[in-house]
Every structure is written in structure tokens, then in C-alpha cells.
């Protein structure tokens, strides 16, 4: 069973890397928001898998916290970010900087 958990752990790490690249590169706000949201989901999965990999399934409590609270940050972004700026324009700014 351990081999299955290891493969899934590395698979999750790989998709974490992809999300990380998207969050770092952007270029639009929406890329970053989605990347962070996806990274949160990956974390929930990762903590679950590592819990079973190390024979400590009680780690699932922490995965539960993330599952419950992960989207609070995203709501904050939607609430407090001014989206009136054109995303394409932001992409252009990004290239200049």
C-alpha cells in the first residue's frame, strides 16, 4: 500500500509545482486566484496522503480545517479586490515591470 501512497504524494507535489508556476507567473489576477485555490485543495489531499504514509491518520483533523477554511481567503479576494482594472492591462503592466 505504501507504494500507492508514495506515488500519489509525488503526483500531488507535481501538481503543486504547476500551480506554483501559475501563481508566480500570472499574468492575470484570475490565474493567481485559481492557482491559490487549487494549491489549497492540493494541501488537503497532501496532508491526507502523508497521514496514511506515516501511519498517522489522525492528521486528517488538519486536512479538515483546510477543507473548511480554504475558501475564506478566496472570498476575501473577491470582496476586497477592485476588478474594474482590465485584466489584459494588468498583464501588460506585468511585462513592463
Amino acid at each position: 500500500m505504501e507504494i500507492v501512497y508514495s506515488i500519489s504524494a509525488f503526483g500531488i507535489l507535481f501538481s503543486m509545482m504547476l500551480a506554483l508556476i501559475r501563481a508566480a507567473q500570472g499574468p492575470t489576477v484570475f490565474d493567481r486566484i485559481l492557482a491559490v485555490n487549487m494549491f489549497g485543495t492540493m494541501t488537503v489531499l497532501f496532508i491526507g496522503v502523508v497521514g496514511y504514509l506515516t501511519n498517522r491518520p489522525d492528521f486528517l483533523d488538519i486536512a479538515l480545517v483546510y477543507a473548511l477554511m480554504n475558501f475564506i481567503a478566496i472570498i476575501a479576494v473577491l470582496r476586497y479586490r477592485d476588478f474594474s482594472v482590465d485584466p489584459a492591462e494588468e498583464a501588460e503592466n506585468h511585462e513592463h515591470s
Binding site: A19, A23, G26, V36, F39, G40, T43, F46, Y66, A73
Partner: peptide
């Protein structure tokens, strides 16, 4: 220089630290 990106990335930083 994009502070919004920095905030998003620091969110990811905290997720990885928890892992």
C-alpha cells in the same frame, strides 16, 4: 512589485509550511 501576487504567494507559502 505586484503586491497582489505577493499576497497570493504568501498564502501558498503558509500552505507549504503547514505541510
Amino acid at each position: 512589485r505586484n503586491l497582489f501576487a505577493a499576497v497570493m504567494l504568501s498564502g501558498i507559502f503558509s500552505l507549504i509550511s503547514a505541510c
